[in-house]
Computed example of a mutant assay.
Amino acid sequence: MNGFIVPAAISGFWFIIGFIIPLFIPRGPNKGITVTCLMITAVCCWVLWITTYIAQLNPLFGPQIKSTTLILMKNWGF
């Protein structure tokens, strides 16, 4: 359950920025552009964040060291 709190909070934040705040933009000649900018910004930032978050949950592979390098590292004296 605790692992779900952070993604839900961040997703909720970007949902508010992209879909709730545009409802409160006052009428004017640039309302459409402002709403579009807010929505595109929220979607792009959310996709960037969720991609980074998911990539860190289960990395494709860890560091891979060749056996010759590993043998040399054993001789370093640490």
Rank of each mutant, 00 (worst) to 15 (best):
M1Y: 06
M1T: 03
M1F: 12
N2A: 11
G3N: 13
G3S: 09
F4V: 08
F4G: 06
I5D: 07
V6G: 10
V6N: 08
V6I: 15
P7M: 07
A8Q: 14
A9M: 14
I10C: 03
S11F: 14
F13C: 12
W14L: 10
F15T: 02
I17Y: 03
G18P: 00
G18D: 05
I20L: 10
P22A: 00
L23M: 15
L23W: 03
I25V: 10
P26H: 11
P26I: 00
G28T: 10
G28Q: 04
P29V: 06
K31G: 04
K31S: 00
K31V: 07
G32Q: 15
G32E: 15
I33M: 05
I33K: 02
T34R: 09
T34D: 08
V35M: 02
V35S: 12
T36G: 03
T36M: 12
M39P: 03
M39S: 01
T41L: 14
A42Y: 01
V43T: 08
V43Q: 00
V43N: 05
C44W: 14
W46Y: 08
W46Q: 04
L48G: 13
W49T: 04
I50Y: 08
T51Q: 08
T52W: 09
T52F: 10
Y53M: 12
Y53A: 11
Y53P: 05
I54D: 10
I54F: 01
I54E: 06
A55E: 08
Q56D: 13
Q56S: 15
Q56I: 09
L57A: 07
L57M: 09
P59F: 02
L60W: 13
L60V: 13
L60I: 06
F61E: 01
P63K: 11
P63W: 01
Q64L: 09
I65Q: 11
I65R: 03
I65P: 04
K66G: 03
S67V: 12
T68L: 15
T69A: 15
I71Y: 12
I71L: 14
K74S: 09
K74R: 12
N75C: 03
W76M: 10
G77P: 00
G77F: 03
F78K: 01
